[in-house]
Design a protein around this nucleic acid. Sequence first.
DNA 1: AGCCAGTTCCC
DNA 2: CGGGAACTGGC
Length: 476
Amino acid sequence: MINIYIFTDSRRLSTSCLFHTMSQWPSPGSHAQAYANPRSNESGDTGFGSNPGSNNPTQDRFSPMSNTSGDSSSVGDYAMWNQVTVPGNAVSNSFPAVSSAVAYISTGHSDPASYENFGANIPVAHAVTGQSNPASMSWSPDTAVSYTTNTETSNPASYGNFNLETLNDLMATIRDEEFASAPEGTDTLMHLEMPINVTPNFLGSQVGSNSQMTVVMQSASPMQPYLKILRQPQRNGHRFRYTSERGSHGTLEADRMSGDQKKKEYVSVKLVGYRPRAKIVASLVTNDSQRESHIHRLVPKKFDLSANEWSHPEIQVNMACDMTATFNDIAVAVFPQKMLTDMHIKEHICAEKRKSRSVSINPAVRRKLDEELKSKIKRLKKFDGQHIVVLKFEAYSLNEDGLTGPQLCSPVFSSEVINQRSTQNGELRIYKIGKSAESCQGGQSRENDTEMLMFTSKVKKGGKKCIGLPVNVCYL
DNA sequence: AGCCAGTTCCC
DNA sequence: CGGGAACTGGC
């Protein structure tokens, strides 16, 4: 049995995992509240200043196990939902063995995992220590530390126990079982409000960055669906093709994860925490923080311009494919700039029609749209955005009649994809190389084909920084 | 005139 | 498919 208490970015506490540890679901209005917030007690004391595990009551501490009586029974089987201690560490005291999952730990001092009463095989969703590193403990492989920070001595990622995947898998298992057994009307129980008076304090003072916390908790929250990119697109290697280049010129592939470099892999995205069916839509956005729609388009191999109708590639997912969309037929298409204005106008019309507004494209509107486009391209050129795209994935529910429902979660963005033709960002590629060694005196051993030459392409050119090398260079 | 990025062509 | 090369208009 595993108790996991989840703290989400919206300051809501999910009790669903806790319910899982009970043999049956509690009826609405039962003990959910007491379990949901182990820090709360009847007097409304948030727990600051008292700590049942502490030998020194004068220390300013905050412990999830605290309540007015010092009784820890209300937190279940000693699961730690949250521990924040400033100078000390609740686990270091004579607290009974901690045997359940820990969703969040923050200490300004020692590392909870270094104490014996912090049992083995405890998944830790989040740990912040000012000193040693929980992930450095020799836990068994099925223990997961999903996130640690502020460890001044070492890097959590260097340890095998630092493993977000393991934790996510664990959560997924629990979640799936929950979905199967959840009775009607339990939704409200899963989103109990956190006590607002304590949350901002420890977020601000104990955690270095709110945003880091948010990311972790979003991905760990069992009830909120989210999109997870399983295969990222290849950063280099895809050449953006002009729409005028008829025929097929290959698709955007994904980084090889299987180790077999010859086997093609494709970009794939999984919708986690939702079933039974949905649709995942892919589009291109800029690589700056604005993530606005790109001037390039994602198109299928057999893309026909004359169709005049253009839409984002989308894939329907269901349980048979594990809610995973594999985009094996997409390529980045470049529209000549003189066509862009027309496209922009066309899309403007479509968007207005969707809002059921009347559309009138008079010269003034046309000029305005044109200006928009010009400034967009100008902005793109500042960071070579024409040669870099980012994939955006969105998930929508799908009714049984095939109609598209509301968006299910916030979109996710892929890593950057760089146009293979980009002179600014393209990889320096060696495409021809001679012998690896040769006499520096030359001549003596020289036979046919023994020059030591490397011919490359994609050397950065242009501007004053150009060192005068031609496109094909010889490095010796 | 020469260069370059954008564009088109073609093997 | 995957790649080189040629054309083009602006600077």
